[in-house]
Design a protein around this nucleic acid. Structure first.
Lengths: 204, 204
DNA sequence: GACCCTATCGATCGATCGATCGATCGTCAA
DNA sequence: TTGACGATCGATCGATCGATCGATAGGGTC
């Protein structure tokens, strides 16, 4: 088969390269800020060639978002599997979420921010995947409250607070930064469980 | 002066209307997803008229972002002024941030998400305003730790965790929702200070 | 060797983009 | 009453958008 120069130079097919370059560009400039021409130029191929792999620009975005949501969900599900306590499960889930947002940072950010660029059924599908993902976290919290491990806070709001905080990691994390990923993850878990108040402090 | 039909029908000038409609549209579709034509159509005016008030599309975005950052900073600064303890200051800052993100929701979201649409000096200016804003929160935490009110967590990371969580409120808050803003704010403050662990629970 | 299929190309479609022009409208001061 | 001027209009610019076209090169299949 005829392969593009760029595709032959790497071990990826043109379709896989298109996915990767689209992730890069949409991460930097957003969906509407990225033209199909930009992606084609980055792949080293004509624009019409991309339409051989993805029927539309929207389908290219959907491929990114479904892949990201699906793999993130799998990672968290695997991480909490068989853990005995809510505390351990929640810590593992937070850790898995942060890890995914670090080493698949661009896909995660695109998935987190381009919801508004989706239309119709595509939007509904991703919303369902998000609800399902959030539900995993909320279920842990609710079970932990039933078991007496966790305080009786509003489960839905608590879930949003935790997810809001750890999703934001993708907005500032730098691999060469001051803290390792494990340190970041551990510190977040400590914050969530124990809070910031000094128990023996003046206000206790 | 010659006033457009839309401007005459309201108490706003065309320039103010343009700002408001641009906020609406960029909130829904993002900066690159919103055309100057869209804004003009929403205002009820010709596209060229908008250029009488804003020299470029980028300047329109900058007007929104600087306004949002400036007013949000003022609100938090006023909220924490004269409060005696770090605990009270942080609670007030969190409350003010959430309140701003609720009643100026669209501007806040645009300011939070369109950083990547800015270029050159514009980007630098907004980044400085963000750093300054974040610095207010971090200063409270550091002072609270010195005073023994707060645990010795990583101040920079703790600040990001709190801001990440409360900024995300704009992504799900609905005025007709289950919880009032005061309840949301109070619950968040409780989470941040006390955490979710049950102190007398099995893991304590 | 005849055939087909996938992958790619260059060219081009109609639509829309951000931006700018000169002309005209409406208001207010003199 | 009139002249100046800010505000608005309609028309248009060159560039770029997402999408589609027909053509064809190069392997695999029988």
């Amino acid at each position: 088969m005829a392969r593009s120069a760029a595709s032959a130079r790497t071990d990826k097919t043109t379709g896989e390269l298109a996915y990767a370059r689209a992730v890069d560009l949409m991460f930097e400039r957003g969906y509407h800020g990225t033209s199909v021409r930009d992606v084609a130029r980055a792949v080293g191929v004509q624009m019409s060639t991309l339409y051989h792999y993805y029927p539309s620009k929207q389908d290219l975005l959907m491929a990114i978002m479904t892949t990201a949501m699906q793999e993130m969900t799998e990672r968290v599900a695997e991480a909490i599997d068989d853990l005995p306590s809510a505390r351990e499960q929640l810590a593992a889930a937070v850790h898995a979420h942060i890890m995914f947002h670090a080493d698949r940072l661009k896909e995660a950010v695109v998935a987190d921010t381009e919801l508004r660029s989706l239309e119709g059924d595509d939007l509904q599908l991703i919303l369902e995947m998000r609800d399902n993902y959030e539900g995993m976290f909320r279920a842990i919290i609710i079970e932990g409250q039933k078991a007496g491990e966790l305080r009786a806070t509003d489960a839905r709001l608590t879930t949003r607070a935790i997810l809001g905080a750890i999703t934001d990691v993708a907005n500032w994390y730098r691999p060469k930064g001051r803290l390792t990923l494990n340190a970041i993850s551990a510190e977040y878990v400590g914050l969530f469980f124990e809070g910031i108040a000094e128990v023996s402090g003046p206000s206790a």
